[in-house]
Design a protein around this nucleic acid. Sequence first.
DNA 1: TATGAATGAGGGTTCATTCAT
DNA 2: TATGAATGAACCCTCATTCAT
Lengths: 192, 192, 192, 192
Amino acid sequence: MTHSKSVRRSPGKRERLAAAAAQVLHEQGVEQTTLADIARAADVPVGNVYYYFKTKNELVEAAIDAHAQNLRAVIGALDALPTPQDRLKALLNGWIEQRELTAQYGCPTGTLASELDKRADGLDQAIAKVIQVLIDWAEQQFQAMGRDDSRELAIALIAAYQGVSLLTNTFRAPDLMTAEGRRLERWIDSLT
Amino acid sequence: MTHSKSVRRSPGKRERLAAAAAQVLHEQGVEQTTLADIARAADVPVGNVYYYFKTKNELVEAAIDAHAQNLRAVIGALDALPTPQDRLKALLNGWIEQRELTAQYGCPTGTLASELDKRADGLDQAIAKVIQVLIDWAEQQFQAMGRDDSRELAIALIAAYQGVSLLTNTFRAPDLMTAEGRRLERWIDSLT
Amino acid sequence: MTHSKSVRRSPGKRERLAAAAAQVLHEQGVEQTTLADIARAADVPVGNVYYYFKTKNELVEAAIDAHAQNLRAVIGALDALPTPQDRLKALLNGWIEQRELTAQYGCPTGTLASELDKRADGLDQAIAKVIQVLIDWAEQQFQAMGRDDSRELAIALIAAYQGVSLLTNTFRAPDLMTAEGRRLERWIDSLT
Amino acid sequence: MTHSKSVRRSPGKRERLAAAAAQVLHEQGVEQTTLADIARAADVPVGNVYYYFKTKNELVEAAIDAHAQNLRAVIGALDALPTPQDRLKALLNGWIEQRELTAQYGCPTGTLASELDKRADGLDQAIAKVIQVLIDWAEQQFQAMGRDDSRELAIALIAAYQGVSLLTNTFRAPDLMTAEGRRLERWIDSLT
DNA sequence: TATGAATGAGGGTTCATTCAT
DNA sequence: TATGAATGAACCCTCATTCAT
């Protein structure tokens, strides 16, 4: 049992910064985003940011964590559904529902992965892990469907999502996501 | 004997810069790349770069043009093949052959599209056009195969490539590209 | 007893920069003056200047404001004198007293007006307003003297000053200012 | 067919450059004007400028000479008039006729004097000489009118012109020049 | 003479990070 | 803890001047 968790630091300020970072980094990109941008979005004085995060990289890391946490929540909700097909299709529906955001800024984890790859820090590993979690989960679903090529199918599914996210974003065309989502749905049905 | 077209302008210096830009921007990303980086890669003094390109953005544009030109060449070569299936599979093979480069730096056009989207310049439109050319070409192939859902299939194919490029890059796993390429090959065969 | 307004911000640093700008810009001219010049004159690190002024133009603007403020102070002092003739003559004496500075660098507002006119920013309007204030004040004095051509006389007076400032500066001849000042004094006496 | 006067250098190219320099420097100011600007205005390739003028300063000098030459021509024309009053009034009329140009760019020699004063080169002396010529000429006219304060009057006249030019330019108000010109005319009449 | 191209020094500006309180 | 202010390295870009032909 954890006792109380000594709270001297303003409650949630760190979380507010992480959430702001996740959002602003998604919208503007890592390089285009200033610490001041994030601080402003979180309504925290610039100088104070460094009390919670020693470097900009740590803030990016926190944003990745936020994405990971969000992914876990999504997966948790999906797991409540009865069949793997239901779960996968619900995932697709979630993607489709986010199509407007995706058209504007791309997939949050995908664009982050793309950006962080060009940097020397170890942050690319962190974001890779997040995507890995999603792939692993998808693999489990396909396995539950009795497929022995579950890994390959999982890769194909996530790749399809990442790819169409990029196209949706590039052409600012949310309908691309809808169409591809529907196509993937039919594809899943065809696998049983 | 080559005819004596007096070459005052150092021959191809502009092209050398554009090519260097295309490469370095791919490897390092747009924001991480300095003009000095490009200048060095092209072995051109920094100040001289501005004789050929008035801004950094123009250099990025030139890099995009270089990618477009390269794409046209690739497509031109593919068009020499007899059947649309042959042409599409040859495209897949090209992607697979480039898997090491993709694992290191991602798809040149895809990462560029992702990055440029976060910027205010009109460069995102330029890279969008390049990708559009590829989609259009793929659409023609599926059409030649007698499919009336050729557009959707084209999107699916290019999205699959972009997506698996991102994963290949994120996990530094060239094999992902190989596996997905093979899968797409079977998929194409199944469409006839 | 001074109230204890806690001074975190280095007191008057912004003002120090503005004052330094006013002086250095006057001495060297706007284009010839580097931000580093102003920073050095104010004993402020270059990078820190941007904490107070986002662009060089803003610094120029601050310098103009400083001139405006100074002008208001001068006018305020003059207004304490009994008759308009006294006030105008006191103005002339002020010009004469500054003759050495004028010989070296010209009239602060005049040279600034001349320079800023050749630029695309709206700064020319700002300096115009400063000069307008002086003209308006002079007009009031002539009006108080009962002249119905007060506006024309005001223009003539300020023009005479600006013109002789330019000659004083061009020929590095402070005596020109003295002589013209005396002449203008007689002219004012002749107007009653 | 005239041979004479060995013409190897393109005839008048140097003059064209000097004239272009005079105009562009007046319009844009010395610091804001690049060599390329002048070269373009004279329709001469940039590299070729240096065959005629070794430095930018020499071009400025040439522009000053052009102004000097122009002034001599003006004075020459004025000297044809019968009385000194006529001559001085004709000078005033010339100023009034140029009021639109003055409103846009100020007095060509005055603005140049103002700018060159802030520079370390000896060019300020050159422009000072030009203005001196005008003052000397005016002095002669007042002398011919029998005034023993001719020098002071000359200074007053030229100062009035320079000053009102600055105001005309600052306020973009050509009418200021007209009004002050008329006033000076009455003043001259009053001196006899 | 003529000319496109080359060169390098310097200027304005941004921003992650640190400091002092 | 909290915060405004400070710092300096680096970047993009301009331009007078020089070079090579």
